[in-house]
Design a protein around this nucleic acid. Structure first.
Lengths: 349, 349
DNA sequence: CCATTAGGCTGTAACGATTTAGTTAGCAGC
DNA sequence: GCTGCTAACTAAATCGTTACAGCCTAATGG
C-alpha cells in the first residue's frame, strides 16, 4: 500500500503489472487494447478509488482542458444579476454542458490581472462587451478560438444584433401616437460619467465605442422622420443598468413640473423602463395615458407582469448558444447578426 | 528565433543565459534574486512576448489552480436565470475576484459526468443544494475544502438559513388578519413529480431531503397556533421555480369558483408569489383585499415594484460571500446559520 | 585568518498524464 | 520454414513549471 497520497495512473499501472500507456489507453482509446484487459483495468481502478486521469496533467500534456472562458466586460457581480447577461451565460452554459465542456467566468473589469493567468488554461474565449482595456485581448493565446459578443474584434467571429434598425422600429411605433414631450433615457453614453440630464457640457462616446450610440441613432432617425428635431428632445444618461443607479435619475424626470414632464420615454434597456414603470405607478401616473414607456431587451421580468412592457426583444439565450457553438466549432465562426422582434405591450400600445 | 511555438519559461531562460529556476523566481519569489536581475528578466519577458508562467503547468506542479468550482444542484441554465442562485453566485464571485481566484461553474444535474473530470482541477468546492446523486460528492478529492450551501454534508462546513422559524414568522404575520380560505403553494415537495394540487395520493419528500419541507413545517405551526387545522388547508405543488412552470398551477388556483378561491396564498418562493401577483392582476383581483400573498427569498424583482411583495428576505449574496470566504480560509469553516428578515410589503400588509 | 553565514544562483527531479516509436507474439500465406 | 502483417502491449520522451538541495562568492565575526 503506497497509502496517503492520491492514487495516480502510474500507481494503478504498477499495481496491475501493465504499462502506464496501457492504463491511459484504457481510459482514452478503447480500441488500443483488448476489451478484456480494458475491463479489468477499469474495475480495478474503481476498486482502488482511481477516478480517472487527472485533468490538470492531461491538459498540460494534450493542451486541451475542455474549459471555455467567458470574459465579461462588466463585473461578475453585475453580470450575474443582470437579466441580459445571465441569459447569455445561460445559453452558453447550455451548449457547453451538452458537449462536456465547462464554464470559467472571468471579469475584464475588476480583477483583470487574473485574466492572463487563467487565459492559458481555457480552450477558447467568449468575450462579452467591449473591454475597458483592449490590451487584455492581446494576452490571449492567438491560436485559440475567440468569439466576440455584442461587438467585434478584427479577424474574429462575433454575434450581435443590429441596434440602429431595432431602435428605429420601436421609436417609429411609439411616435405613431402624437407626443408633446418625448425624451430619451440613454445607457452609459457620455464620455465622462454622468448620471442625470445630458447637458451641453457632455460629449458622447465615439460611435465605434458603444452599442448604445447605435441605439440612439435609431431613435433619432425616427424622430427626424416624425418631424421632430432630435436636438430638441431632452436626454438623460444612466451609468449602470441597475435599479439603484436608475432610481435617482428617473425620479428627477418624473418629478419635473407637469408641463415639463415627458409623455414618452424611450429607454435603452428594460431595466430602465421597469424602473420608470415602478416609480411612475408609485406616483399615481396612468400608463400609458400620462406616460408612454418603451424598453429594450425583452427580459422576462418585463413581459411576465401587468402592465406588460413594450420593448424590443433580443434573444440573449440564443446569442449565447450561437457563441458557444462557434467556439466549439459546431458552426462556422464568422460575423453574425441576429434578428430582433418588436414586442408591443401595454406601456406603449 | 525558435519561432512558431509559444514561448516558454525555459526558452526565456536560455535566451537570457540564466537558469529556469531563476526565471521562475523572478515571477514568483522576488526575494530569491537580486532586484536588478529580476527587473531585467521581467522586461525581457515582456519584449519576447512571454506573459508569465503557464497556469496549466504551474497547477500541475504546485497542486493549486486558484480555481474554485461551484457545483449546482440545478441545471446551469436554471441557476443562471434564477434570482436566488444568481445572487449567491454573485456573492461568491465578488469574494473570489478580490482574492485573485476564478469561478468554474458545474452542474450536478445535467452533465454530472464532467464533474469528476473538472473536479481534480479546482482548489475547493462550493456545493449549492442537495445533489441528485450524492455519489458525486465522493468523487471529489477529500483533501480539498468543501462548503455546502442550503444543506449540510457530514464533516463539512455549510451556510444556510433556518427555514422553519422564518416561515412560521411570515405565516403568523399573514394570519393576523382573519382568513376564510388559506392555502399553500409548495415548491418541489412531493416524492413523485406533481405540478398542481396535492391530493391524497402523494407522499411528501422525506424531511431531511428538502428545505421546502422545513418551510411547510413553519407554515403549519402558525396554522395550528391560529386554530386552523393544517390538514384542512389545501396545498398545491410546483415542480420548478420558473414563471412558465408556475403559470398553469396558479391559473388553476385563481380560476376556482369564487367560493373556493383562496383569500390567502402562502408561497414558498418569490417567483411563485410574483406569478400569483401578475395573474391575479390580469384577472382584476384586488390585492390585498381579494387575495393576500406572501413569498419567500426577498428577490429584487419583488421589492422594486408596486405593489411590493410581502416576503422573507434571505441575503443570498451574503450567503455566497460567506461560502467563498470559508473556502478561501478567510473565516472559520463551520456550520453557520444566517438570519432572515420579515419584509412587510403591500401584498399582505 | 579561518570558520560561518548569507545571498544569489544553478541543476535537476518531480507533478501526472499522453504519445510516439518500437517490441513482441501469433497467425496466415506460400 | 520463412516472410510479412496485425494486434496488443511497453519504454521513454515530453508537456511547462516549481521546489529542493547544493554550490559558489563575498561578507561578517571572533
Amino acid at each position: 500500500m503506497p497509502s496517503s497520497r492520491r492514487i495516480t495512473l502510474k500507481d494503478l499501472a504498477r499495481e496491475l503489472g501493465v504499462s502506464t500507456a496501457t492504463v491511459s489507453n484504457a481510459f482514452n482509446r478503447p480500441d488500443q487494447l483488448s476489451p478484456k484487459l480494458r475491463e479489468h483495468i477499469l474495475t480495478e481502478a474503481q476498486r482502488l478509488g482511481y477516478s480517472g486521469p487527472d485533468a490538470q496533467a492531461r491538459s498540460l500534456r494534450t493542451g486541451r482542458s475542455r474549459i471555455i472562458a467567458v470574459i465579461l466586460a462588466e463585473s461578475l457581480t453585475y453580470s450575474l444579476n443582470d437579466a441580459v447577461s445571465s441569459e447569455l451565460l445561460s445559453g452558453i452554459a447550455e451548449v457547453l454542458d451538452t458537449r462536456g465542456h465547462t464554464l470559467l467566468l472571468l471579469s475584464g473589469r475588476q480583477n483583470a490581472a487574473s485574466v492572463p493567468g487563467a487565459s492559458s488554461i481555457a480552450d477558447g474565449f467568449i468575450i462579452y462587451g467591449l473591454m475597458p482595456s483592449l490590451k487584455l485581448l492581446s494576452d490571449l493565446p492567438a491560436e485559440r478560438p475567440l468569439v466576440a459578443v455584442d461587438f467585434s474584434i478584427e479577424d474574429h467571429a462575433n454575434v450581435h444584433i443590429d441596434n440602429e434598425p431595432a431602435c428605429y422600429a420601436i421609436a417609429r411605433h411609439a411616435l405613431k401616437v402624437p407626443t408633446r414631450r418625448p425624451a430619451v433615457v440613454n445607457l452609459r453614453l457620455t464620455e465622462q460619467p454622468c448620471n442625470g440630464r445630458i447637458g451641453d457640457g457632455q460629449t458622447l462616446l465615439p460611435a465605434e465605442r458603444t452599442i448604445t450610440r447605435a441605439r440612439l441613432a435609431g431613435f433619432q432617425r425616427a424622430f427626424v422622420e416624425a418631424g421632430i428635431d432630435p436636438a430638441e428632445v431632452p436626454m438623460w444618461n444612466i451609468e449602470e443598468n441597475t435599479f439603484d443607479v436608475c432610481t435617482p435619475v428617473i425620479e428627477e424626470i418624473l418629478d419635473l413640473p407637469d408641463a415639463e414632464r415627458p409623455d414618452l420615454l424611450l429607454c435603452m434597456s428594460d431595466r430602465i423602463a421597469l424602473t420608470v414603470l415602478t416609480l411612475a405607478e408609485q406616483r399615481g401616473l396612468r400608463i400609458p395615458e400620462d406616460l408612454r414607456i418603451t424598453g429594450f431587451d425583452g427580459i422576462a421580468e418585463g413581459q411576465y407582469r401587468a402592465p406588460q412592457l413594450t420593448t424590443v426583444r433580443q434573444d440573449s439565450t440564443e446569442k449565447g448558444r450561437i457563441a458557444a457553438r462557434m467556439i466549439l466549432g459546431m458552426e462556422p465562426a464568422e460575423p453574425r447578426v441576429m434578428a430582433t422582434e418588436l414586442l408591443i405591450g401595454d406601456t406603449c400600445p
